[in-house]
């Protein structure tokens, strides 16, 4: 990688982070999350003091796992919001012409915007995670984190990246609200199709085929199974046994994500601005 190329990447990623840091939405979300974590901490403290000596066993790790599940879900929404705004504001402010007139490829533009947004969202995610861990450890007088949390965090980093990618793609073809609704629909459809098709035996895939089942099968085979990442993250969080076929699921995730990224890149390259 040449020095110029590296400097361009760095400047574009920094530009993306600077842009989103000024977003009123981010400031609001940041304050709301901090308040929510402190509130949960207070509730937990009250709960512990009122049940002291009772049979109810509360420890930092259990209560924190619940909190982390909430943070994970919330981070997906945030990834969607910022994934969409990362390019949408370039369109709306009519600044995109200036970026694309630089000697950078559209692929570089796309990935630098996505990485910049990912750094910001994942940074926010880590902040929520660590703040919760500190407060919950203090409330329960036990060290709340275990190695499963670290693995879960890394997995959620991948999940957030894919959600940002999908949001970015949708923001190329729809307005902010439209793209956000499309993202929610996609995540929902992937979730429903994964859980319903996975429960079937191979021989049942094409049995009683109708339009909905066919659509579900197409989604199941050709779109990244985002649930796989969250299910894996939850298993690590709760130290439960992993019941999925890890090798096959991981292979499918890599292949479908690569296909999705390839198609998105083609779309970005073909588009007229």
């Amino acid at each position: 990688m040449t020095t110029m190329y590296k400097a361009q990447w760095k400047a574009m990623i920094k530009d993306t982070i600077l842009k989103e840091l000024r977003s009123k939405t981010l400031i609001f979300i940041f304050i709301a999350t901090t308040l929510m974590i402190f509130l949960s901490h207070q509730v937990l403290k009250m709960f512990i003091s009122s049940n002291e000596g009772s049979a109810v066993m509360i420890n930092g790790a259990n209560s924190l796992s619940l909190m982390f599940t909430m943070i994970n879900a919330w981070s997906v929404i945030i990834a969607g919001i910022f994934g969409i705004s990362s390019i949408r504001s370039d369109f709306e402010d009519k600044i995109i012409y200036q970026y694309l007139a630089f000697p950078i490829s559209r692929t570089q533009y796309m990935f630098s915007r996505i990485f910049g947004t990912w750094i910001l969202v994942f940074g926010y995610y880590l902040y929520s995670y660590i703040l919760s861990a500190i407060l919950f450890s203090m409330a329960t007088h036990s060290f709340a984190l275990h190695w499963g949390h670290l693995v879960s965090m890394l997995l959620m980093g991948l999940y957030v990246f894919l959600v940002i990618f999908i949001s970015f793609l949708y923001s190329m073809v729809a307005g902010k609200i439209g793209a956000f609704l499309m993202l929610l629909a996609t995540v929902g459809i992937i979730s429903i199709s994964t859980s319903s098709i996975r429960a079937l035996a191979y021989s049942e895939y094409f049995k009683d085929l109708n339009i909905f089942k066919l659509f579900g099968l197409l989604v199941y085979f050709f779109l990244p199974r985002l649930n796989f990442i969250t299910e894996l993250a939850s298993s690590f969080l709760s130290k439960e046994e992993i019941k999925l076929n890890l090798g096959l699921e991981a292979l499918h995730l890599v292949a479908t994500s690569a296909l999705f990224i390839f198609l998105a890149n083609r779309l970005v390259k073909k588009r007229n601005f």
Binding site: K19, I95, Q98, F102, P103, S105, Q108
Partner: peptide
């Protein structure tokens, strides 16, 4: 992209963040 390496461009109405 290399074609734009020695090109400077300003649109009709310059705007930036």
């Amino acid at each position: 992209a290399a074609s734009r390496s020695g090109v400077g461009f300003i649109p009709e109405k310059f705007s930036f963040f």
